[in-house]
Nucleic acid binder design. Structure first.
Lengths: 375, 375
DNA sequence: CTGAAAGCGCTTACAG
DNA sequence: CTGAAAGCGCTTACAG
């Protein structure tokens, strides 16, 4: 707080002159000061190694290693001397060396296709939780729906010899994953399937989700129902398929638009659908696109649900504070994440090699964004 | 899609019997099948090493290394033989060995205190983007507002000898960071300051944000203004200080409550404040707590802004679709993140050692969650 | 239970 | 420009 009080003295000179993204302006708005460096040098260089500890404790490096890792018992006079030496020298083992020796790292890699999407974020959170408890550290990579970043990260994870890989594949899935698999590193795919038959897969039943979302609207007498999806993303394609099934079963004509999985795309897709025809309902295939669609409906003064009913797929944390609270098909994210970790661990611990595919049904949560169409 | 069609055949048997979190039920809801394993063994074991490549290309390992890293030019007959051998053997260098030899990894560690908070998620995204472009890989750790996880991850990053650390410290900040700093690994703190004077710090001007949020409400004739914060989180404490400054400058009595930085806590804090007195306005110190507060206001039928006006600090992506769209003090997240990466790189590349502190002002964005108090 | 020694798979001065 | 050799800092059979 002391620092803060000082920092705030001449703060907040905005005066409306702030322009988002203007880097030049940043110089003016920010204050930059050199903090005192208190004499301590960042003492690079002379790092202490296991040999130094051994010497100081009058034991062999092997013994130090053994107390460090607990790989074998060490008798009392030695043990304590080692511990003290470690403490006195502030020794921290170099994992780079340990990893090389052991030919593995205590990490599992998690590749996520969009870290800003709350759906993935919730997944990651659950995965990290579970893995952490089991003493695995998580190396999280954001592939940004990009094949190139996915390849680069997969390459790195393979080179780094992680214990296992958990991935929500960016499309097109599959090819780049072989390198990892060939190294004998187990992979489990979540949210979206992966082509390689050696990988486990945990997905929601997306075509069912799309179908049920649509059927729910049809049951409320809607007929002109649009769909916002993303032809480039496998989950959305499946949801679209479910939507189309339901529509054709009811002899209604489907109309869908590409929302590119993002907020902005969802907005554009909504615009396009609205332009083309007089919709009374919308199925939106993911939570980010739902935001875009809602923004457009609001901007046009089309009230939800009276004028346009909406069913979203995904149940993000904000679904209830939106006006009206969203009726959704929710994936059991937490349980799916736990399953993902369990599958990976099973492979790690039992050496299982036959691939599993687990499909979770979604749950319909009725809130207030759908009403019966007034005929 | 083929796989999907099959998967969906008997999908979606929910029938209302699904209970969130019931693990037992999971067995019934999910279908698990063994996928074909197509004969390929996960050929563990016989990994190919640089020596194998060298042998096949009739060159020395040193030469292979040189074409791999580009550390020195390699003449044509050799170069091509090496490339072919690499390709034929599907060789991928073992980074564990490379790292050990070089005594560093091409990774920077990013520690974030809550990965489910869109504020951090946006930050992480921007950091990852910038770092990736510069060819650094990001090791992301979720500390969960927990000193223990923070310590464990910091320990790991130190042992792993990452190039640099970017951290939004969980409180209490500081102590655990010394190990990293002592190793000569640069650290830059974001969102919240870190105690060690060797670290760079990039923060928003939080007391100013709290003050301006409050002044804005006071200017709209509000007098009974509550504050939802988190005494355990430095940013929130600063925002509270700003709030208190503004209140006492206007001779109004402050009333604040602890929302523990989460949705649930925000809800409880709102309940508590509402119970204690007849508020007409609320300042909420972060976006997650804002959700909780809004849920409570909605549940009680207290309309925003007519009955209770709200100013939130943080401008998450959902601020505009909420009803009413939120008036907020927004941090320039993207620019802050870019600054963070720039500071780290500067240390990495120029070897700068004097610490910097950069403070960004927040921007007031007026939307519709505040109205003039009707006297 | 402890120590001496080999080795994990690379990279990089050092010669040539 | 290329190769032989040393070495990064650990761990782990192998003796004792």
């Amino acid at each position: 707080m002391v620092t803060y009080a000082g920092a705030a003295v001449n703060g907040g000179r905005l005066d409306g002159c702030l322009e988002e993204g203007t880097v030049v302006a940043m110089q003016d708005e920010t204050r930059e000061t050199a903090a005192p460096t208190d004499g301590r040098r960042p003492d690079t260089g002379a790092t202490v190694r296991i040999g130094d500890v051994a010497q100081r404790a009058h034991v062999s490096p092997a013994t130090v290693s053994r107390v460090l890792t607990g790989s074998a018992p060490v008798k009392e006079p030695y043990r304590e001397r080692v511990l003290r030496a470690i403490d006195e020298l502030d020794y921290r083992p170099n994992l780079l060396a340990r990893n090389l020796r052991r030919q593995k790292v205590g990490m599992i890699g998690v590749l996520v296709s969009d870290i800003e999407n709350p759906h993935f974020t919730a997944m990651v959170r659950a995965v990290e939780d579970a893995a952490y408890r089991l003493d695995y550290r998580v190396l999280l990579c954001n592939t940004d729906e990009t094949a190139e970043k996915q390849r680069a990260y997969l390459e790195m994870l393979a080179a780094e010899r992680v214990l296992g890989v958990i991935i929500s594949p960016s499309n097109p899935a599959g090819k780049e994953i072989e390198g990892v698999l060939n190294l004998g590193i187990p992979v489990v795919a979540f949210d979206r399937p992966v082509d390689d038959p050696r990988a486990d897969v945990v997905v929601a039943d997306n075509v069912d989700a799309g179908r049920r979302a649509t059927e729910y609207l049809i049951a409320a007498a809607h007929e002109r129902i649009g769909f916002i999806g993303d032809p480039g993303v496998e989950t959305c394609v499946a949801r679209l398929a479910g939507y189309e099934e339901a529509m054709s079963a009811a002899v209604l004509s489907p109309r869908s638009s590409d929302g590119r999985s993002r907020i902005g795309g969802g907005a554009e897709a909504a615009e396009a659908l609205l332009r083309d025809g007089d919709l009374t309902a919308l199925v939106v295939a993911n939570n980010l696109m739902t935001i875009g669609a809602l923004e457009v409906l609001r901007a046009r003064g089309l009230r939800v649900p009276e004028r346009v009913s909406v069913v979203a797929i995904d149940d993000p944390f904000w679904a209830q504070i939106v006006e009206p609270p969203l009726t959704v098909l929710a994936q059991p994210v937490r349980r799916m994440a736990e399953r993902v970790v369990a599958l990976l661990l099973e492979r790690l611990e039992t050496g299982r090699t036959d691939a599993r595919r687990v499909v979770f049904p979604c749950e319909l949560i009725e809130r207030a964004s759908v009403c019966r169409r007034v005929v």
